[in-house]
């Protein structure tokens, strides 16, 4: 039994490693593929923790892009305006969104799903106004240019690829481990029924706030990486649409599994690379989204593939001193 548990935790990580290696090989053949693979990795980093928060814990968030923007602006300001080293600013880029999220989480996470969705998207819009108006720090609409590439990593595209995919692998591993653990069980109970979770001893507010904060921190890291990779950060770079798209990736890919968000991120990136024209893209893409949401609401990697619906081989013998006959057994 221990082995099956380990395997189910490791196998998504192996699959992701496989994806990363395949993309790297393709990237060596055609360098432009590295750009795609880094984008997929970036989106996956934003989508994975949301998958844990929403798919397992039932708390929706449309703020992932917003927290990434906070992380990106933080490092842009600290490195460009104050001359910090990118690794020093990394701490703030991760810490600031995480703390911010933790502080605002309590009132938010009590809200019903629909309400939470609207509140988080409003938050992102507030962030955006702040970025646009705090001109002295953020450069207003024009944003901040000339953000230095990361030392070593910034030199070669393949390094960027491996940096971001290593992060994805780590996050995916942690996600899978958490779900396997007793705390993952408690998290699942929160989604199914909050009263059940509370009555079995889970501090629902703390559990969700921690995860909300964690996903904001990871988004901050992704934003940090993005700012140094692109070298430029403006309020429009990571806008509310991105936040919505991240949620779409989670839902389309399959919100209940580890692989879902990554599948969603990949499809999303590939679709926007392959679909013709930038202006008409929204039409094709939006329609596709609607079709999938209506006809496959559980996403592509659906719960049928989940671990616990598979019956394990072991059976447990009935207790010996069974009195009477059992009539019903479904």
């Amino acid at each position: 039994m221990t082995r099956s548990v380990r395997l189910s935790r490791i196998s998504p990580v192996l699959i992701i490693l496989g994806i990363a290696i395949t993309l790297a090989i393709a990237g060596e053949v055609r360098p432009s593929i590295y750009a795609t693979s880094v984008t997929i990795g970036f989106f996956s980093l934003l989508a994975l923790p949301l998958g844990l928060l929403y798919g397992q814990g039932g708390a929706i968030s449309l703020a992932q892009g917003g927290f990434a923007a906070v992380g990106a602006f933080t490092t842009a300001i600290l490195t460009v305006k104050f001359g910090w080293s990118p690794f020093a600013s990394l701490v703030v880029s991760v810490g600031l969104p995480a703390i911010l999220a933790f502080v605002i989480a309590r009132p938010l996470l009590r809200l019903p799903e629909l309400s939470l969705a609207l509140v988080t998207i409003s938050l992102v819009m507030i962030f955006k106004v702040v970025f646009e108006r705090a001109e002295r720090l953020t450069g207003g609409y024009n944003g901040i240019t000339g953000i230095a590439p990361l030392p070593i990593i910034g030199v070669e595209r393949s390094y960027a690829h491996w940096t971001v995919w290593t992060a994805v692998l780590i996050v995916a591993y942690c996600y899978a481990s958490y779900v396997e653990s007793g705390r993952g069980r408690a998290l699942n109970a929160i989604r199914v029924d909050r009263l059940l979770a509370e009555s079995t001893g889970t501090n629902v507010a703390l559990e969700l706030s921690s995860l909300f904060s964690l996903s904001a921190g990871i988004a901050g890291f992704a934003g940090w990486f993005y700012a140094h990779y692109i070298g430029f950060m403006a309020p429009d770079s990571l806008d509310p649409t991105l936040s919505a798209n991240i949620l779409f990736m989670v839902v389309l890919g399959g919100r209940k599994s580890v692989l879902g968000p990554i599948v969603g991120a990949s499809l999303f990136t590939l679709a926007s690379d392959l679909l013709p024209g930038t202006v008409t893209q929204g039409m094709i893409f939006g329609s596709l989204l609607i079709v999938i949401l209506v006809f496959f609401p559980d996403g592509i990697v659906s719960p049928g593939m989940m671990r616990w619906t598979r019956r394990r081989a072991t059976t447990i013998p009935e207790a010996k001193n069974t009195p009477g006959v059992r009539l019903e057994r479904a």
Partner: peptide, 15 residues
């Protein structure tokens, strides 16, 4: 889940 239909309306906004 009604939230999925709300997501549809967001996608429809894109369209």
């Amino acid at each position: 889940d009604t939230i999925l239909i709300v997501l549809c309306t967001i996608a429809y906004t894109f369209v």
